[in-house]
Design a protein around this nucleic acid. Sequence first.
DNA 1: TGACGTCAAGATCCG
DNA 2: CGGATCTTGACGTCA
Length: 418
Amino acid sequence: MSIGYACRTVGVPYTDLKSCTLKNANGANLYKLIDHNLSALENIIDYNIINNVKLFRIGSDLIPFGSSSVNNILWGELFAEKFLKIGEKIKESKMRVSMHPGQYTVLNSPDEGIVKRAIQDLNYHTQVLECLGVGQEHKIVLHIGGVYNDKKVASQRFITHYHYLDESVKRRLVIENDDKSYTIDNVLEIGIALNTPVIFDNLHHAINAYDKEKSDDDWIKVCKKTWQKKDGNQKIHYSQQDPLKKIGSHSHTIRIDEFIRFYEGIETEKLDIMLEVKDKNLSAVKCINATNKDKKIQTLEMEWGKYKYTVLESSPSDYLEIRKLLTNKSDYPVISFYNLIESALQKECTARNTINAALHIWGYFKNIAEDKEKNRFLKSIEDYKQEKTSVRTIKNNLWKMSIKYQQPYLLGSYYFVL
DNA sequence: TGACGTCAAGATCCG
DNA sequence: CGGATCTTGACGTCA
């Protein structure tokens, strides 16, 4: 059983993917971007290995304009070694990766040109995974596409167009229910016809279900039958509704109580769970720690080190509460721990608490900072008090100091990104 | 024709 | 001039 996250990290230095606009997409630029992005991907994979994350979705923008003819450089060959090095790390650590073309890759379109581009896009995604040298259990997830006033005809067209795909693409392709058009039973019908694995997405299903007679667990069991041994473990997507945003919007973080309720209601033995959530790796690590059989307080102490200053600026009372929670070294109060962090992070930061936390961070530098740096920090605090600047300015300033003076504890802190 | 979703690039504004 | 903040881009479907 693995739990993972999609595309990018939060709070992990040197893991951002870069891109460019169409008009700047020339060979020299693209070469630099790809080189940078592959290094970033390697850093993400390294982070995953260190943090015991065994499931990860590689972002489609790894190769900018990867499926477009404007990108005509032979990136597969030019970066072959870099790809293979990353692929080796993935295989060695038994990580499973995947890719997921976006909502604009539509295989079942009645428009020939759009179908052609969709096929090119699927070829591109396949090529990335092949360059890494990873097996066919490393999947490409696709939605069915548009309805065009007749879902039966449109489903049939998906099946017809599927047969245009290269064997290497078909081997990896899996299909998923969406939040507007194709319900899980629609997708299963196509999946069974094509002998293609089906991904169950719980939030899409909650919004767009043919009938709600069956539970999530029931549907997961039905989908399981579409996964064969060669496909690897069954995969599902899991996300939660953001309570403040419109229907279908992913939550900022995975609420741990709600996740555990879901987790305990399904058969997880041979199941991989891809989380779709704004805070990415933070929620993945949270859910991994909450379901881990290896219950060590050190795991929570490390997590606390990353969250503590964010908690301090949101809620000093929760800060004290969590410290108390972690005093018994033989305990593993993982659920209470994350509940307290979630509750703290929901609270509005008062100006007083914001400044208090900033001064705590400043404590790392006050004896080593140059006068110029000290003045800049004090000025940012003054400006903030007078509402002339946002807390961003203070944090960006302190972040630069953390890099300059190489404070490892601060470089891993979520204070700068949450 | 614009909303939808996503997030970095690119543009512009500010001190 | 550097940094913060706002706007655009790139894609296809649907109302």
